Simulated scan of single mutants.
Amino acid sequence: MARQGYYISTPELTRPHLSTAEWDFWYGGKPAAKSLPGPDGTSDMIHRGEIRDGGDYQTRMSRSAVWNTAMDEHNYLVRRWNDFMSA
């Protein structure tokens, strides 16, 4: 998942599956110590010295925001719509 640019919600379970260089790049926000493989595990997707946009894991996660996609009035409006449709 890290090689595809995604994070797992339990990063410590991911760590044993990544080399130190991969962990430092994907989660640590450090420059790549060497060329790193892409999702297929063979081709070099990340070149030595590249830095991941957005910084380390903690910084990236602290910038995440979630909002409620249902309006506060949703349940009320659904009830009123159902009343209208059944009238």
Rank of each mutant, 00 (worst) to 15 (best):
R63E: 06
M45D: 03
A87T: 01
T59W: 00
A70N: 15
M45H: 05
A32D: 01
R79A: 10
M1K: 10
A87H: 00
E50K: 14
T59P: 00
F25L: 07
P11I: 00
N68Y: 09
F84E: 09
K30V: 13
L18Q: 09
P39T: 08
M85K: 13
Y57N: 04
E50C: 12
T20D: 11
G55E: 04
P39Y: 12
S19K: 03
I51C: 12
T20P: 05
Y27F: 10
G55V: 04
R80H: 09
P11R: 00
G49R: 10
R52C: 08
G28I: 00
G41H: 01
G29T: 08
R63C: 02
N68D: 14
W67F: 15
R15M: 06
N68G: 08
T20S: 09
A65T: 14
T10V: 11
N75F: 10
L77S: 10
V66F: 15
A32W: 00
D56Y: 05
Y57T: 02
S62H: 11
T20F: 09
A32M: 03
D83T: 03
M45L: 10
E12R: 09
R79F: 09
P39G: 11
P39M: 09
A65L: 11
R60M: 04
M71E: 14
W26R: 05
R3S: 04
G41M: 01
A33H: 04
R15P: 01
Y76Q: 13
W81V: 01
W26S: 02
R63T: 04
M45T: 04
T59A: 01
G41C: 01
W23R: 11
I8S: 14
Q4H: 05
S19Y: 02
R15T: 06
S64G: 03
D83G: 03
G29E: 04
S62Y: 06
F84Q: 08
Y6P: 02
E73G: 10
Y6E: 09
A2Q: 00
T20C: 06
K34L: 05
A21Y: 02
L13D: 13
W23M: 07
L36H: 00
L13G: 13
P16S: 08
D53W: 05
L13P: 13
A70G: 14
I46T: 04
F25Q: 07
W67V: 15
G38K: 02
S35I: 07
R48Y: 10
S62V: 08
A33P: 01
E12T: 06
G29Q: 07
S64A: 05
S64T: 07
R79S: 11
A33R: 06
L77I: 05
D53H: 04
S35Y: 09
G54E: 13
A87D: 01
M1R: 09
H47Y: 15
I46D: 08
